[in-house]
Nucleic acid binder design. Structure first.
Length: 205
DNA sequence: TCGAAGATGAACT
DNA sequence: GTTCATCTTCGAG
């Protein structure tokens, strides 16, 4: 099987929306404390630092938390939401432009038994949802600011999986109602008919 | 220093 | 479909 770790040029593309779509079908891998787990990315959302009220770093807003989004593409942005869930983002674009892609769901490939242990065997679909996949892959706050490469224990591979345009569904992002009109932007991308997608919305199929 | 809200998920009725 | 767990972050005072 052809296997290539994604290079910086992939993440530093100027269009976060194109990177978000290109990440579908890629494989997110973690190797931590001797445990190897991986899953194919089946759902993403694009967030732009400019003209996007749903983004934490909208319109040049800079806080200690969002600082990493201004770094060059390929860095990892993790943060805690609702006091209990970690969300995993991939920073894109060049230094100074705060774009990022939220990984919302994966289809488990390797290390499923480890993921189930991390998820306490409570659910079959261990990678369904942004908080759930972080728990399954062992991603946490200590990963904030790392670069996506094998040395970090977190990276993304291209295994030659091709995702046809007609298999990609575009839909509004989830949980960003506070963003007003920007909540309506079709910046959520997921694989049509994939069981591991976190939420399926009617009228978008 | 303090208060409010949040890019969610699981367990309920 | 509804409720609730749970705590960092950030902006206001």
């Amino acid at each position: 099987m052809k296997k290539t770790v994604l290079n910086p040029a992939f993440y530093q593309h100027y269009s976060v929306e194109e990177v978000a779509q290109a990440l579908l079908g890629k494989v997110l891998v973690t190797h931590k404390e001797g445990i190897y787990t991986s899953g194919m990315i089946v759902e993403t959302e694009a967030y732009s630092g400019r003209h996007d009220k749903a983004c934490h770093a909208n319109n040049g807003k800079r806080t200690p938390r969002t600082e990493i989004m201004y770094a060059e593409g390929g860095h990892i942005y993790t943060y805690l939401i609702y006091g209990m869930h970690i969300l995993f983002n991939v920073v894109t674009n060049m230094e100074g432009l705060a774009d990022a892609v939220l990984i919302r769901a994966i289809e488990p490939l390797e290390g499923l038994e480890h993921m189930q242990v991390r998820r306490k065997l409570s659910h079959q679909q261990v990678g369904k949802g942004p908080g759930a996949l972080c728990k399954a892959l062992g991603i946490g706050k200590p990963d904030y600011g790392l670069y996506l490469e094998e040395a970090s224990g977190i990276w993304i591979e291209d295994r030659g999986i091709k995702v046809p345009e007609q298999e990609v569904v575009k839909a509004p992002r989830v949980g960003v109602d506070y963003a007003g009109d920007d909540a309506l932007l079709l910046r959520r991308y997921y694989l049509k008919n994939n069981m591991h997608v976190s939420k399926v919305i009617k009228n978008y199929s």
